[in-house]
């Protein structure tokens, strides 16, 4: 580091004194976080002046003085995880925070501040802290202020010690408007100096759950033997039949002739049976309902609702014609 200070104001007043200060600080030894370090501070002063005519005179440099000092860095590391990767409104999520003192200084007045995801609520009395398996009390009951949740465990954290903090939150319906990301920071006091940890984040994938406005479509493709459009015992499902939906989804039936499609946007949905995927079969006549004499089905899917699309087929004698 090199610093040179010139005070022109003083020069104009004819004062001859100008102090330039040069401090060079060199660190010896390998720099590693959390280790006590021996450092040497070298200090050199320089001075110069200008005479009355304003002509600068040569600068003189003092001798170097050195100070040797031992530095004990203080450091807090925080890690945060949740018990699930995704949740939906109504679920409770248990968060677990590890605060570790990786420095060399005893940390007091430890405080963990968690900025919760939008639409989550601290579950009262769910906060627990423990140090090496021994429960730790809180100075005051953990409280939520807006999205900020503050824990102040009554403990000091010695170098190398780890505090475990668990608590639970409940997802409110508002959660689906947020992004599910929260941010925890620990801070404390290391011998009179404040120390702040890294921020830890955890992202929870928020599924809409019962608040979803998507529905589910289920259905089946089967060999209809009494031409009523319903599957009775003795009417086997047809595997590998292809159904195209109006949004381009292509769904194939399983070995039992069943299919389902989740997260279908609610509204009027149509789908059609691809007869080329069923060599030897075509749509069965329906002797009971005229509208089922078609390869296409239209259902009205309410938000979060369930709708059926059943396709009855029968052995054909004229493929590809209908």
């Amino acid at each position: 580091m090199r610093m040179f200070i010139s005070l022109r104001q003083w020069l104009r007043r004819g004062l001859f004194v100008l102090v330039g200060l040069l401090i060079s600080l060199s660190l010896w030894g390998v720099v590693t976080a959390g280790q006590a370090q021996e450092i040497t501070i070298t200090n050199t002063a320089t001075a110069g002046f200008a005479d009355g005519a304003g002509v600068p005179q040569p600068v003189v440099t003092s001798n170097a003085t050195t100070v040797r000092a031992t530095v004990n860095p203080s450091e807090l590391v925080i890690i945060k995880t949740g018990d699930r990767a995704s949740a939906e409104p109504g679920d409770s999520v248990v968060y677990r925070i590890l605060v570790q003192n990786t420095g060399q200084t005893v940390i007091t007045d430890l405080q963990v501040v968690d900025t919760l995801p939008f639409g989550t609520k601290y579950l009262a009395n769910s906060g627990r802290a423990a140090l090496a398996g021994v429960p730790v009390n809180f100075a005051s009951p953990p409280s939520q202020n807006g999205r900020t949740l503050t824990f102040s465990p009554v403990t000091t954290l010695n170098p190398g010690q780890t505090l475990t903090l668990t608590y639970a939150v409940v997802l409110t319906p508002d959660a689906i408007r947020g992004n599910g990301r929260n941010l925890a920071v620990a801070n404390g006091n290391a011998g009179g100096l404040p120390v702040v940890s890294n921020p830890a984040t955890f992202v929870l994938a928020i599924r809409p759950g019962i608040l979803a406005d998507c529905g589910t479509i289920i259905g089946r493709v089967f060999v209809d033997k009494n031409f009523d459009g319903e599957q009775q015992p003795g009417e086997p499902g047809v595997p590998n039949a292809v159904i195209y939906f109006d949004d381009g989804n292509r769904v194939t039936t399983d070995s039992e002739g069943l299919f389902s499609l989740a997260y279908v946007v609610a509204g009027t949905r149509t789908a059609t049976l691809d007869l080329t995927s069923l060599p030897g079969y075509t749509v069965a006549p329906n002797l009971y309902r005229i509208e089922q004499n078609s390869t296409a089905r239209m259902v009205k899917l309410s938000p979060g609702g369930l709708a059926r699309m059943n396709f009855a087929v029968t052995p054909t004698f004229q493929e590809g014609q209908r």
Binding site: T282, P285, L287, I290, N293, S294, F317, Q318
Partner: peptide, 13 residues
Amino acid sequence: MLNPRGLHRATAT
């Protein structure tokens, strides 16, 4: 049943 107005039949007989 299948041909109420002489429309084309969509299904097998």
